[in-house]
C-alpha cells in the first residue's frame, strides 16, 4: 500500500498540501476540509495524517470502512451512517468530518498533496499491508 509520509524537517509552512487536499476531497479550500493537518510546533512542523493502519475498520458498524486492493483504507459513503466512532477511535486522530455534517473523511493516499508541496516535505511510501486489518 502507499502511505502518505510527511518529512517535517523539509516543511516551510506553505500549507499547499492543505489546500490541495481540501479541494480534492471536499471541494473546499480550508484546513477544516483537509485530511492532512500540518501545525507549527516549537521545533518546526508536525503533521496529523492517516497512516492506513486500519484500526478504524474494526469499529465501523456498517462495513463502510474497508481496505481496497491497493491497501488504502477508504470510506464507502453510501454505507456510512455517520456514527463518528472512527473519529473517536483513530489512534492518530487522523479521521475528520465535514463541519456541520456527520460525514467522516480521511486521507486516500491520492498524492495530490505530494505534488502540491513546493518543498518535497511529503512523499508516498510503499508499505506491506499483509498483516493489517482488512
Amino acid at each position: 500500500m502507499k502511505v502518505l509520509t510527511p518529512h517535517p524537517e523539509k516543511c516551510q509552512g506553505a500549507f499547499a498540501c492543505v489546500h490541495a487536499c481540501a479541494k480534492v476531497l471536499n471541494k473546499k479550500d480550508d484546513l477544516a476540509h483537509s485530511a492532512i493537518r500540518p501545525r507549527k510546533t516549537h521545533q518546526g512542523f508536525a503533521f496529523t495524517v492517516c497512516n492506513q493502519c486500519g484500526e478504524c475498520i474494526a469499529v465501523c458498524p456498517t462495513g463502510a470502512l474497508r481496505r481496497n486492493k491497493a491497501g488504502t483504507v477508504l470510506i464507502q459513503r453510501d454505507l456510512c451512517v455517520g456514527c463518528l466512532m472512527c473519529i473517536g477511535f483513530c489512534p492518530h486522530k487522523a479521521m475528520f468530518r465535514v463541519p456541520g455534517t456527520a460525514t467522516p473523511f480521511k486521507c486516500t493516499s491520492c498524492g495530490n498533496c505530494v505534488k502540491a508541496c513546493p518543498h518535497g516535505a511529503l512523499s508516498l511510501e510503499a508499505q506491506d499491508h499483509a498483516n493489517l486489518p482488512v
Partner: peptide
C-alpha cells in the same frame, strides 16, 4: 453539528 460534537467527544 451540536450532536456530532457531543458524540465525537464521547467517542
Amino acid at each position: 453539528e451540536r450532536i456530532a460534537k457531543a458524540g465525537e467527544k464521547m467517542h
